[in-house]
Structures are given as structure tokens and as C-alpha cells.
Design a protein around this nucleic acid. Structure first.
Lengths: 205, 205
DNA sequence: GTCAATTACGAGCTTCGTAACAATA
DNA sequence: TATTGTTACGAAGCTCGTAATTGAC
């Protein structure tokens, strides 16, 4: 009874086209394997889904139900994949940022604004922290990025792990050597895999 | 990018156990193929899901999200399969019944009562129809079963199609020769694949 | 003859298990 | 050494396409 997403995709096409041959065309495959897959699906379910009629096919009640359900399952899966990929690309998620209070007088607010424009799916929070506290928070992954001014205060922090949007690394950012030019300037920053590297660069894709 | 339900099942187990070896045990397979499948899943998604740590593994943010989503997709699929199988077994659906008014004085109400007790998932409706109208309705599949008394009025109706719970055939019922003993008695009836054959027999499984 | 579906069969890919390897406590 | 995960590789199974078959118009 091992139903597969492929079975659902195939059956969905057949149910929509009400024809195996047309569905096979739409699926870019030949009829016989599609016919086989539908038979296999019926056998695994133990349910007749199609009525082979003189001309083409017809759905049984169970077949009609499966056609509807299959679409839901497929849609749910595709949405799940999409969400996971967005998180993976750092376009969706949460990011915690530590700053020294004077950063709010500098270029930080504008950087954050650009970041938010580029990554509207990422929820951010900013917390005012003393430099030493930021370093501690970075090491414990409680913040993803720390903004402060003195390079001397930034110790070796383990390289970023994609585990969370809260991983951090030291200058130069692991993902982007471009980031180092910024970080040697007015502030030091620690980057996460993607989102943070882009934040550092002010990229708004 | 061809994600499979198997991938989701595997990853779900890994995410719950937070260990590939333990998950493999639970899945009754050996570790290496499971490890491979997870790698394949990551590659197809283009997303890192697990962090290989010194001791065991850890979920990334994307991995945690997928673990949650996967459960939903799997549950949705299993519920869909269940529903379709119930319909296929005639335990879920709708059935329209035609009767002559005098049937309500006979054994019909009790038959219906027993049917409903046996198939609580099947919604039924009873309509009073003249015998000739019942025959017409049966042929057009607008009713699943017709109750009337004269065998002479029942013509040849195509054999039952599992297409609907509204298919009908003539005495003796196609699925059950047992049914004929009833139908030669006080009423004639036309049966659908399962539910109706059972209805005729008054079976309450 | 054509159209639509099924059956038959072989090539190529996928998945799994076993064995060997690497790294860590 | 025991544990946990990865790499390597071959056998078994699965999926697909081509070709032949059936059945209805």
C-alpha cells in the first residue's frame, strides 16, 4: 500500500483530462506506462478508480474523491517545499540583531530598511547590547549579527552554521569576502549564511 | 526536484529521532541507504536540512520546518487514502433510493434502518416514484435502487458500474446471487456494487 | 482503418544491503 | 573499542519506452 506522489500526479492528470492518452501527452510520457501506473495505484489502494468505457474513461465515485484529494496533497507538498526552500535561502525566518545604541545614529537604520525591503519574509528584532555582551550572544547564537565599533573586541567565533539564522562568524564573513570591506570600516559584523551576508552588503535582490 | 513521500517519511523519522541510525532502526532498514536518501532529499531541495555534529545530528531551521510540514503532508495523504478506500468499499458516499409508496408499509423501513446502522457513513435519500419512473431513473443512474413489486416492469438495465453509488442492475443482482431470493419475493431491486448488494441482503457488517 | 486502452518485454535508473572507512568519546 | 555517520559497490526492483494486441466505432 505504498502510494507515491507520482501516482497522485499521474492520476490527477488522468482525472482532469478524462483520458489516459491525453494525460500521457500532458505528462510527456507514453500511454502504456501511465496506464500501468494507474493500475498499480488502483491495486495498491484496493479501489477501482476508473471505468474503462467504450470511448475513453470515466471516474468512479472513489476516483472523483481521489482526484480532489490528490490536488490538495500535491499543493500541500509543493507549498511545503517552497517554504523550506525559502527558509534555506534565508528569505523567510527570523533574525535577531544586537547593536550598540550609537549605531542607531549611523548607517544602521538605513541598512535595516534596505534589508527589510529585500527580505520582507524575514522577521527581525534589534536589541541594544554592549559590545562584550554582543560577542557572548554571538557565540551562544542568541543573535545573528552584532554591530559595534572596535575590532579588538571581536574574538574568534566559530564559522556560521546553517542551523539557524542566528549563527555568526567573524570578519571576514565566511560567505562573502566582499563583506570584509564594510566590516573594516565603521562597524564589525558577524554574518549568517545568506541573509546576513546580504544584509552586510546591503543587497536588495 | 522530485520529492517523494518516501523522502518525507524518512526525514520525518530522522527529525523525530534526531539520529539517522535510530531512525533507520525504526524504519526497518540499514543506516547507509537512509543517510543517502536524506542527502538526496537535501540535494533535490537544494537546502541543508541536517547539521552533522560531533555526536549525532541537529536540525537546521529549514529542517525543522520540513519536519513539521512533512507530517502534515503525510497525514493529509493518509487521510485521503482512507477516504477513497471507504468510498471504494461503499462505506462512505451517497445513495438515492426510489420506492413505491406502499413499500413504506412493508419491510423497506426496517431494511433501511439496518442499512443505516451498518453504513453510517452513507447518506441516503428516499424518493417516492412510480415503477415506470423508477426504471427510467435507474437507467439514467439518478437512483441506485428501485423498490417496486412487478418483475415485468423491470427491463434490462446495464450491469452496475462502480462509477457511482447510483448505478443499478436488474435481478439477479450482479454481485450477489443471494440477492435474487429476496428480489423474487415481495419486491424487485437493483443493486450497486457493494453498498446496494448489502442493502438488499440487509447485511450489517 | 483509426482511436483508446492494455499486455509484453527489455533497457536504464533507483533503492537497498553489505562492507569498508572516518571521526569521535 | 563502541558509536555515529559517510562512501563504495553490486543485486534486486521499479519505471519507462517500444512493439504487439484487443475492442469499439
Amino acid at each position: 500500500m505504498n502510494i507515491d506522489i507520482r501516482h497522485l500526479r499521474y492520476f490527477s492528470a488522468v482525472a482532469e483530462e478524462l483520458s489516459i492518452s491525453r494525460a500521457a501527452q500532458r505528462l510527456h510520457m507514453s500511454q502504456p506506462p501511465l496506464s500501468q501506473q494507474i493500475q498499480q495505484l488502483e491495486s495498491r489502494l484496493g479501489v477501482v478508480l476508473l471505468l474503462r468505457k467504450k470511448r475513453g474513461i470515466e471516474l468512479t465515485a472513489a476516483g472523483a474523491a481521489l482526484a480532489a484529494e490528490a490536488k490538495l496533497v500535491i499543493a500541500r507538498l509543493e507549498q511545503a517545499v517552497d517554504t523550506v526552500q525559502q527558509i534555506g535561502r534565508g528569505e523567510l525566518g527570523e533574525i535577531r540583531i544586537g547593536v550598540i545604541s550609537s549605531a542607531m545614529w549611523g548607517e544602521f537604520p538605513d541598512l535595516l530598511r534596505r534589508f527589510h525591503a529585500g527580505f520582507p519574509g524575514v522577521n527581525w528584532s534589534v536589541k541594544e547590547l554592549m559590545p562584550a555582551v554582543q560577542v557572548q550572544a554571538l557565540m551562544e547564537r542568541r543573535i545573528a549579527i552584532g554591530f559595534f565599533r572596535s575590532a579588538a573586541q571581536a574574538p574568534a567565533i566559530p564559522p556560521p552554521s546553517p542551523a539557524m539564522l542566528t549563527a555568526g562568524t567573524l570578519v571576514p564573513p565566511h560567505e562573502s569576502t566582499l563583506g570584509s570591506q564594510h566590516s573594516s570600516n565603521s562597524f564589525h559584523c558577524c554574518s549568517t549564511p545568506t541573509a546576513c551576508a546580504r544584509l552586510i552588503l546591503g543587497i536588495t535582490p
